Amino acid sequence: MTGCRDTEPAKIAGNAATDTELSRVSLMIGQLGLGGAEKQVVMLARGLVAHGIETTLLLLSGRGPREEELAGSGVTIVSLGYRGITRPWVDLRRTLSDTAAALRAFARLVAHLRRARPQVLHAFLFHCYIAAAPAARLARVPVCVAGRRSLGTFKEGRRAQLAVERVTTGMTDFVVANAHAVAEEALRQEGLPRDKIAVIHNGMEERDFRVAAPAHLATDLPVVLCVANLRTYKGHEYLLDAMCRLQQRGHRCTLVLIGEGPQRPDLERQAQRLGIDVRLLGHRTDVPAFLARADVVVLPSLEEGLSNAVMEAMAIGRPVVATSVGGTPELLRDHGVLVPPADPGALADGLQWMLTDHAAAARLGKAAREWALEHLNADSMVERHVSLYRELLERRSDR
Results as ranks from 00 to 15, higher is better:
Thr7His: 13
Thr7Glu: 15
Asn15Val: 09
Ala17Ile: 11
Ala17Gln: 13
Thr18Asp: 06
Asp19Glu: 15
Asp19Asn: 15
Gly30Leu: 00
Leu32Ile: 06
Leu34Arg: 07
Gly35His: 02
Ala37Arg: 02
Gln40Cys: 07
Val41Tyr: 00
Leu44Pro: 00
Ala45Gln: 00
Leu48Ala: 12
Val49Ile: 12
His51Trp: 12
Glu54Tyr: 08
Thr56Met: 13
Thr56Leu: 14
Leu57Cys: 09
Leu58Ala: 07
Arg66Asp: 10
Glu68His: 14
Ala71Asn: 14
Ser73Asn: 05
Gly74Ala: 13
Gly74Ile: 09
Thr76Phe: 10
Tyr82Lys: 02
Arg87Ser: 08
Arg87Thr: 04
Pro88Val: 03
Asp91Cys: 04
Leu92Cys: 05
Arg94Thr: 06
Thr95Arg: 01
Ser97Phe: 09
Val110Ser: 04
Leu113Pro: 01
Arg117Tyr: 11
Ala123Pro: 01
Tyr129Thr: 02
Ala133Glu: 03
Ala136Cys: 10
Ala136Asn: 03
Arg140Lys: 14
Pro142Glu: 04
Val143Ile: 09
Cys144Met: 10
Ala146Asp: 06
Gly147Ala: 09
Gly152Tyr: 10
Thr153Trp: 12
Phe154Glu: 15
Ala160His: 14
Ala163Met: 10
Glu165Ser: 04
Thr168Arg: 00
Thr169Tyr: 03
Met171Thr: 02
Thr172Asn: 08
Val182Thr: 13
Val182Ala: 06
Leu187Ser: 07
Gln189Ala: 12
Arg194Gln: 15
Val199His: 03
His201Trp: 10
Asp208Arg: 03
Val211Ile: 12
Leu217Ser: 04
Thr219Phe: 05
Pro222Cys: 04
Leu225Gln: 02
Val227Asn: 07
Val227His: 07
Ala228Phe: 08
Asn229Arg: 13
Glu237Asn: 13
Tyr238Met: 07
Met243Arg: 15
Arg245Pro: 11
Gln247Ala: 15
Arg249Met: 11
Gly250Trp: 06
His251Gly: 09
Arg252Lys: 12
Arg264Ile: 09
Arg264Ser: 08
Glu268Trp: 12
Glu268Arg: 13
Val278Leu: 12
His283Ala: 11
His283Leu: 14
Ala289Met: 10
Asp295Ser: 06
Val298Phe: 01
Leu299Glu: 00
Pro300Glu: 01
Glu303Ser: 08
Glu303Gln: 09
Leu306Met: 15
Asn308Gln: 08
Asn308Tyr: 03
Met311Ala: 08
Glu312Gly: 02
Glu312Ser: 04
Ala313Tyr: 00
Arg318Ile: 08
Ser324Met: 05
Gly326Met: 03
Pro329Asn: 05
Pro329Phe: 03
Pro329Tyr: 03
Leu331Glu: 04
Asp334Asn: 12
Asp334Tyr: 07
Asp334Thr: 11
Asp334Lys: 08
His335Gly: 04
His335Asn: 10
Gly336Met: 00
Gly336Ser: 02
Leu347Tyr: 00
Asp349Met: 05
Gly350Ala: 05
Gly350Tyr: 01
Gly350Arg: 00
Leu351Asn: 00
Met354His: 03
Asp357Lys: 06
Gly365Thr: 02
Lys366His: 10
Ala368His: 01
Trp371Gln: 11
His375Ala: 11
Asp379Phe: 14
Val382Asn: 07
His385Val: 07
Glu391Met: 15
Arg395Ile: 13
Arg399Ala: 12
Arg399Tyr: 13
